[in-house]
Design a protein around this nucleic acid. Structure first.
Lengths: 208, 208, 208, 208
DNA sequence: AATGAATGAGCCTTCATTCAT
DNA sequence: GATGAATGAAGGCTCATTCAT
């Protein structure tokens, strides 16, 4: 009589499907990925997608939500930040990098969604992304000081976030341009650099 | 009975097809774009694609090659830059924004290539991207001074480029998070901000 | 371990299923009706149909049989008719209309059988229709008098029955041609008209 | 450049498909009929239906239109009727019977549609049925005289039409009830009877 | 050179049914 | 006795492609 499917078996099948779908969607894109490939990889019948997710797109939406959910670890949102605003910003940047571990299809799927959003993204952007954005904006607002207007806060936030995002979403392009980059430069190096580079930029914005 | 099709009518049909295909591929991606949509937009019969390009993928390759030619042709790459390195960097940033202005499908097609590389990507990287990168690296090397090592140059370049790329590559995501951003903040504003923010960051990198 | 399912719970579930199936089969027909719609309306699990009736068609057969039982049970068939043959005919016509009143799915199910006979049709004809026909023939034979041959009785019976049948069997077509017909003209009006029209026709058949 | 497909080849394929579809739809109903059965019978590829009719239902609509078009021969609508209104009515009734020749699937399809109309019927009822109805109404109005109101005209028309319709749309049911009816009673006999029976009924309607 | 007609392959989805619990 | 989970078969439809003209 309950709509919520929470049996162990169901949950396990859903998990297998999302995992398999994530890989296939990442490798081939929403359209080129076929139900057959996904269900074959998951080791279930093709009708299972209809049973568990109603249709292909609903499965895709579940994959996107799962990827975002995993990536934006929500425990971290409510973590108490300490120290100066600058220290808090640095910690935030390190957190973003730390979040990018896990199956590599997550970043690929999200890169697609960010570049060309589908309805799947709209369904979760408010719930899963906005809180992070607001947190970032607050810290930046503190660094810029009370004289900064909203436009400046926005521009600054874009500058900070873009540096992180670029590093893991455009991984493949970067690797082609600088083959050894990920050997010579760990993610900690990169986070360290971005923090310092950005804080300098932010301070400069106040200087006039 | 020559294989080379070079009379006027044929060339005109090919041109129309590439133009139409470019828009559709940009809007929907390689797989979601259908022959019917493309030929309808071009105002020709659906068999025309197979006739002129052998198959759909061959058409796509032609489109990518065309977009590439168009953008590489830009005299701007070989334009003489003047002024201090900082002024040159600023000009480069403005050029990047200017390149992506207008309702052109060329950048979108290339974005697709980044997200889901096909055989065409290698050419894109080497012919279009690398010259820009090298130019950028040179200027940054000048700003950082002779004490900077390659790793620093690379990190700095990524920081600068990422801010520009993010602005038009993740445009749709940004629009969802900040609905009026593209009204309140013109691309000139943005380029201005990125230039100043980055130069501050770069100067900070020398300071220790 | 008996095959005969006759405890209370089982009987109740069967009853709910037949009722729900009757409505759905009537509204959509045998093929368009789906197990899911039926079980949803009955408030039971979709496996219930296979459990209680072995398969979909067996359920359909049960529904037809049920509808038949219900209608044949009618005391009206064996009701004593009084008055002149003409009065009896009029009463018969009113009875036909009265049988089809109400939001019952029984007549609709039977109409489906007429349009696309399944194995269940034979039973319908012999058990439900033929008694009515014979009764009708008897009365008409009385009105036409002893000089009428069987062909005339048959033709006359068809004329009378067809007018009634048309009114509810082709109801939807009539509604499309004369949108307000069922407002302006009650079934009593219609029965009254058919009785008078038919009796005039019948009398004319004797007149030569 | 023209949307109207009127090549000989196209027309021939369309004709074959409609003929095959008519038989299958009549035998199995809209839902149970499958594209495979239809195209197999027509000797064409399954995709042909999409090409010529867009989808299964559009094919069905074409079949219904074709059946009605064939049945309501339009030359007859504009035929000059002569003689008294009673003679004209008789001629109309004979025309209706004459129209029912042709492939037997036509009547079956139409019987379904009249009993449970789909959108296919709505699309053609005004164009193909209404003119016949109006013609019939006009003649009946003449017979009933100027004192008759619209309700009476409607009831009378239903009485006349129903007798004809019943005879060929419920053929199967009639045959089961009176096995030899179609041997003993030709359609001319039946038309003759209906005309006389109805005219008596109509005259009776004026008599008070 | 170009096109309307036709096709085969494959995709997503639905459905009735079965199985383990 | 009853059900949630899972499945195989089949259906309608779309697509890129080919063929005859």
């Amino acid at each position: 009589m309950t709509n919520i499917k929470n049996n162990a078996a169901t949950q396990e099948t859903r998990r297998k499907l999302i995992e398999a779908a994530g890989e296939v969607f990442a490798a081939q894109g929403l359209h080129a990925a076929t139900i057959k490939k996904i269900t074959a990889k998951a080791g279930v019948n093709s009708a299972a997608i209809n049973y568990h997710f109603r249709d292909k797109f609903e499965l895709y939406a579940a994959v996107v939500r799962h990827a975002l959910d995993d990536m934006c670890d929500h425990k971290r949102i409510f973590k108490e930040l300490v120290g100066t605003p600058e220290q808090q910003l640095k910690e935030l940047i390190f957190d973003m990098f730390e979040d990018t571990r896990g199956p590599s299809w997550r970043t690929t799927i999200l890169a697609h969604e960010f570049a060309q959003p589908t309805a799947a993204l709209d369904a979760v952007v408010e719930e899963l992304i906005r809180p992070h954005v607001q947190r970032m904006d607050n810290i930046i607002r503190q660094i810029l000081g009370s004289t900064a207007d909203e436009k400046q806060v926005l521009q600054a936030a874009l500058s900070v976030v873009s540096q992180c995002v670029h590093y893991f979403y455009n991984r493949e392009l970067i690797r082609r341009l600088h083959p050894q980059v990920f050997d010579k430069c760990t993610w900690q190096d990169m986070a360290e650099h971005i923090a310092r580079f950005s804080i300098a930029g932010l301070h400069d914005m106040c200087s006039q």
